[in-house]
Amino acid sequence: MTAVAAVPTVEELGWVAVGDSGAAGVARRVAVDCAQRLGFSEQRAGEVAIVAAELASNLHRHADGGALSVRCLRRGEVGGVELVAVDSGPGMADLPFSSVDGHSTAGTLGIGLGAVRRLSDVAAGYSLPGRGTVLTAQLWAGEKRRMVPPPVAGLSRPITGERACGDRYAARAVGDVLLVLVADGLGHGPLAAAASSAITDVFLASDVDAPGRLLELLHRSVSHTRGAAVSVARVSDGAVVFAGLGNVAGAIAFPDGERRGMVSMPGIVGHQSRSVREFTYELPPEGVVVLHSDGVSDRWNLRDYPGLSRQDPLLIAATLLRDAGVRRDDACVAVAGSGVPA
């Protein structure tokens, strides 16, 4: 794996449930507020508003149980707005064709998805008839440019009724090595979110690249919080080194449905740690690494999603979160694929 693209830090702004036409206005305001805080020009913030409104309107017109995630991204000194639209609607058999201006299945002008693709620096989608659709878009400050997404992404959502999510993902690249973490703060709500936030802060600030040593560092650093289950994966060319404490699952998944689980030890980072062990696993070129909290069922199978394993990791994470995040709990999924040149 050659040097991987820089991994942006993520600030979660929450999910907008799209139950009526008014949700488009809510999504637009949240996204524009993020853009303005990140120093977007007035024109670029206006383009953010268009993309957010189009994604939300598309969910309202076509989808069942649709929701839109809005996040602020930072890559060095540059800020970005990320939008993830997830639904369990009828799906589309030909998503690329549906993204062309002028194509519509609802008697509209059909400009929505075409505008999303045209205005975004990065736009992607995955749809399966009968299962639903995931659409993602990133818009970065400055002039529109071609951005290379990193080979890792994650997505979380809080338990129903809570605004703060106690499950969190973080990642960082060190040369040709990718480090991925998922933390599941004990319980849910603000205190769980504080625990997982403290863990990701220490992880991102550290220069340690061994998963076992990272867990030991985190264990010493966050004893003032209620603690969390944590797993860390070190992904390099052909291998994964994995260490976990608690019930954050790790697996290497393949398009044919094969899945190799990775071993996590009992414990709670910050409170109980009898032993930390690292395990090394082979990572073939077609495999992807998936970490998820226990708010996500482990019954997912990439064989059920033709072509998904070759897509952007954010599309994989969002699809699995939608379909396997069925437990009444906070939920988080992180996915690392093969390396992408910087």
Rank of each mutant, 00 (worst) to 15 (best):
V7I: 15
G130E: 09
S264V: 01
R118Q: 12
Q311P: 00
V232W: 07
S223F: 14
A331D: 10
T319D: 08
W140D: 06
I252P: 01
G80M: 10
A85W: 01
G227C: 08
A195C: 01
V276C: 12
A123M: 14
R226Q: 15
R74H: 14
V152K: 04
E278W: 02
I50Q: 14
V240P: 04
D298P: 12
F254T: 02
N247F: 10
G307L: 11
S127N: 11
L139C: 00
M92I: 11
L68E: 02
G112T: 00
M265Y: 06
V48Y: 01
G238F: 06
L55K: 10
D33E: 15
S309V: 09
A93K: 10
A85C: 12
A233T: 08
V51F: 08
F279L: 00
W15K: 05
T225P: 13
V289G: 08
S338Y: 00
G22C: 00
D184P: 04
V174I: 07
L308H: 02
E282D: 14
E162Q: 12
D33G: 15
A23C: 02
G19E: 15
V326D: 13
A93G: 13
A53I: 05
N58S: 15
R310C: 12
I268R: 06
D20W: 07
G227M: 06
S338K: 03
V182G: 03
E77I: 04
S99Q: 11
P96H: 06
Q272R: 15
M265V: 07
G91Q: 04
G244F: 05
Q311L: 06
A31N: 12
A253I: 04
T133F: 10
N58D: 10
G337D: 10
H224T: 05
V232P: 03
A336W: 06
I111G: 01
I252Q: 02
D176S: 14
H103D: 06
